[in-house]
């Protein structure tokens, strides 16, 4: 099989595995509750995620948790649940920006900047390497070569 064929087969296997992995992860309601409650902010003003708000007398988190449990029991998807919370409490209830094209910018810009940075670095390195760099002459020591060989031998490099 050619290298390209192997790569194609590997990619196909990977794509087949993805829905399987998603299905495995989605099947557990407790895990979904844990995951979704970490995507929503508690509304009491404590600035904590719903899943981590630990105020015993919190007026909001018990209500919000009950709503989340009810949504999960109805079989709503994660996106539907987050949409529902956003509609009810406003966009700031979501712990990370979602759903609008502008909000997607939040996710796109950092990796884009990193990629551009890597590209720019590679270009700079390439430009620098095109400039001939004069090598300094070897030191004029009579037994330099034997000393260098000894050092390499001793340092095993």
């Amino acid at each position: 099989m050619t290298g390209r064929g192997v790569a194609r087969r590997a990619l196909r296997s990977l794509l087949l595995c993805l829905p399987l992995a998603a299905a495995l992860g989605a099947s557990d309601t407790a895990a979904r509750f844990d995951r979704d409650s970490h995507q929503i902010m508690c509304e009491c003003g404590c600035n904590e995620l719903l899943g981590e708000c630990n105020h015993m007398d919190c007026p909001d988190s018990p209500v919000m948790r009950a709503e989340l449990s009810a949504s999960l029991a109805r079989g709503d998807s994660d996106d539907a649940i987050l949409h529902q919370f956003q509609g009810q409490y406003g966009p700031a209830v979501l712990a990370a920006p979602r759903f609008t094209p502008f909000n997607h910018l939040a996710w796109i810009v950092p990796p884009l900047v990193l990629m551009l940075g890597i590209g720019a670095t590679l270009l700079i390195v390439r430009k620098w390497r095109m400039v001939a760099v004069p090598m300094p002459p070897a030191p004029n020591i009579p037994d330099f070569s034997s000393a260098r060989d000894r050092v390499r031998r001793e340092t095993q490099l």
Binding site: L49, P91, A95, P97, N103, A106, V109
Partner: peptide, 28 residues
């Protein structure tokens, strides 16, 4: 810096503030 400032930018552009919390930073 981007995550810290994004709620301010969002308020300016979209007219509403958003939260940029742990899920964003954990993923990025």
């Amino acid at each position: 810096l981007w995550g810290t400032l994004f709620p301010v930018i969002s308020e300016y552009v979209q007219g509403n503030t958003v939260t940029v919390g742990a899920p964003f930073y954990d993923r990025v």
